[in-house]
C-alpha cells in the first residue's frame, strides 16, 4: 500500500472530500491534488458575495495550503493536465511534466457552457464559474448601471438577486435552452419569469440575440423582438459543461461527462470520477445522472475515495431537487428530462 500514489484532478468539494478519506484510510500513501486554478480551495457558491464586495478573497478560502502540508498532501495549483495515458498511468501536465499515478480520481468539475449558436458572441460574454471569472465580473461591474443576463441557470438567478441588491438594473433574457441540460416546461419557465420580475428584473422571454456590438459604454445588443438593449455587461449563464476535453484522447468512456458506474468507477478500473464532471449510472433509475452542487460533490468525492481504498460504497440516488428557486423546483438529473 505504501507505493500507492492517489492523484486527484481538481481542488473543489469532491476533490477535498476524497483527499480526506484517502489520507485517513491510507496514511502511508502519496496523495497529489492538481488544480488548474492557482487559488486554494475556496467556496464557489459565495463568489457572488465577493462580487458584491460582501466578502473578501481571503474569506472565500476553505482550506489554506498549510492544511495540505500538514496532511502530507501535495498540492499542485495552477497546473493543468493536458492528457492522460491510462495504459502507462501517466498524467501529462501542460508545463511538460509527467506525473505517475496508481489510482486517479477525476474531480475536474464544470466550465461555463456557451451554446454553439452563440459562438459568434462569445468574446462579448462575461461568465462566472471560478474566482478568476468573479474577479473579472467584479471589475467590469464597477461603474455600470445595467446588466443583461442571458441564458438561465442556477447561478444566474441567484446572481440576479445579488445584482439587484447592488442597485444594478437587470434585464434577464430567458433562453429557450435555460437550465440546460434540463428542459423546463413552459409553466416552470413562466414561474421563473414571474419571480424574477417580482424582484425587479426586466424579463424577456421568447427572444434571442441577433447581434452584439461593443461600444464605449459597454454593449449594444440587438434582439429578434426588441430593437436594442444597451448594457455595460452581458452575463452568459447557460449552465456548466464538464471540463473533460483533456480526456478525449485517453480512450476513457465519456458522454457529456465521464461515464462511471454506481461505484464511481470509470471504464478504466483505476480511474474514478466524482462531482460535476461525472455522469453516474444509477441502477434504480436505470439511467445516468449528473450531480450538481457543492454538497453532492463532497459526498461523491468521499464515495469515490472509499472505493479507491477497496471498499464498496455506492453513489446512491441523487437528491430529488437540487434547485429550488422560491418554490420552482427542478429535478437536476440529466436524463429525467424525457419523463
Amino acid at each position: 500500500m505504501a507505493s500507492e500514489h492517489y492523484v486527484i484532478i481538481g481542488n473543489g468539494a469532491a476533490a477535498n472530500g476524497a483527499a480526506d478519506i484517502l489520507r485517513e484510510g491510507d496514511p502511508e500513501s502519496r496523495i497529489t491534488l492538481i488544480s488548474r486554478e492557482f487559488f486554494p480551495f475556496y467556496n464557489r457558491h459565495r463568489l457572488r458575495f465577493f462580487i458584491s464586495d460582501e466578502v473578501s478573497e481571503d474569506e472565500l478560502v476553505v482550506r489554506p495550503p498549510a492544511h495540505y502540508r500538514e496532511q502530507g498532501v501535495r498540492l499542485r495549483l495552477g497546473q493543468e493536465v493536458q492528457r492522460v495515458d491510462l495504459k502507462e498511468k501517466i498524467l501529462y501536465l501542460k508545463h511538460m511534466e509527467k506525473v505517475h499515478y496508481t489510482r486517479l480520481l477525476l474531480c475536474c468539475g464544470g466550465w461555463p457552457r456557451i451554446p454553439e449558436v452563440h459562438y459568434t458572441y462569445r468574446q462579448h460574454f462575461t461568465v462566472l464559474k471560478g474566482l478568476s471569472h468573479a474577479r473579472a465580473f467584479r471589475e467590469k461591474l464597477a461603474g455600470i448601471k445595467r446588466v443583461l443576463m442571458v441564458g438561465g441557470d442556477l447561478i444566474s438567478v441567484k446572481m440576479t438577486d445579488t445584482l439587484l441588491r447592488m442597485g444594478k438594473e437587470v434585464v434577464f433574457m430567458v433562453d429557450r435552452d435555460s437550465f440546460w441540460p434540463l428542459t423546463l416546461t413552459d409553466e416552470m419557465r413562466a414561474g421563473f419569469a414571474e419571480r424574477l420580475t417580482g424582484h425587479g428584473a426586466e424579463v424577456l422571454v421568447d427572444d434571442e440575440i441577433t447581434g452584439i456590438v461593443e461600444v464605449k459604454s459597454g454593449y449594444e445588443v440587438m434582439t429578434r423582438r426588441k430593437e436594442k438593449i444597451s448594457c455595460g455587461l452581458v452575463g452568459a449563464f447557460f449552465g456548466l459543461v464538464p471540463k473533460v476535453e483533456f480526456l478525449y484522447s485517453s480512450g476513457l468512456d465519456i458522454d457529456r461527462g465521464i461515464l462511471v458506474d454506481d461505484h464511481l468507477r470509470s471504464s478504466d478500473p483505476d480511474v474514478y470520477a466524482a462531482g460535476d464532471c461525472a455522469q453516474i449510472w444509477n441502477p434504480e433509475l436505470n439511467n445516468y445522472w449528473v450531480s450538481i452542487g457543492w454538497e453532492n460533490a463532497g459526498i461523491l468525492g468521499e464515495v469515490a475515495a472509499r472505493n479507491m481504498l477497496g471498499e464498496s460504497a455506492t453513489a446512491g440516488t441523487p437528491k430529488d431537487r437540487a434547485l429550488d428557486y422560491e418554490g420552482v423546483k427542478v429535478n437536476t438529473s440529466w436524463w429525467q428530462i424525457y419523463d
Binding site: P64, P65, L77, Q79, Y92, H95, M96, E97, K98
Partner: peptide, 18 residues
C-alpha cells in the same frame, strides 16, 4: 512550454505554490 516532457518533480513549474 519546454520541448520535451520531464519526469515527475523535475519541472520547476510544478513547485510554484501559493
Amino acid at each position: 512550454n519546454p520541448p520535451n516532457y520531464v519526469e515527475e518533480d523535475e519541472a520547476v513549474a510544478g513547485f510554484v505554490e501559493p
